[in-house]
């Protein structure tokens, strides 16, 4: 979360909505789907660095859920790449910004296909 907050301090992040969770592994699939219904064009699940998980296996759970969600969203009619799990540490706001940029690019490139 500190990395994301730091990244948000710069301009051009108005289209990003942060939601704080205790662990990436605690995010339920229905919550991600609900975010899309609320208007999200893509969802980044941000977890700790691999093998540095504060809850030991939260990253693993988040990874498996992201894979399931990817399949679900494609079945529902969205393009692939709309749910991405990224791993970063507190001192890596640049990696968060990179992930946001990559997601924006995915959203831009797929928005026409979904119409």
């Amino acid at each position: 979360m500190p990395a994301a907050l730091k990244a948000m301090e710069v301009e051009d992040m108005d289209d990003v909505v942060l939601r704080e969770v205790p662990c990436a592994g605690s995010v339920e699939r229905w919550e991600v789907l609900h975010a899309f219904r609320q208007g999200a064009e893509g969802v980044l699940l941000v977890g700790c660095l691999l093998e540095n998980c504060a809850h030991h296996y939260g990253n693993e759970i988040a990874g498996r859920r992201a894979e399931t969600l990817e399949r679900t969203l494609v079945d529902l009619g969205l393009s692939p790449g709309k749910v991405v799990l990224v791993h970063l540490a507190e001192h890596q706001p640049h990696r968060f910004r990179q992930a946001v940029e990559a997601m924006r690019a995915t959203v831009r490139s797929t928005s026409e296909e979904e119409k």
Binding site: L33, R37, G77
Partner: peptide
């Protein structure tokens, strides 16, 4: 309960998209 919630969200999203 979780799976029912998830399915409900998924169906609602599909309905809105299509």
């Amino acid at each position: 309960e979780k799976e029912a919630k998830e399915m409900s969200e998924a169906l609602s999203l599909h309905s809105e998209l299509k």
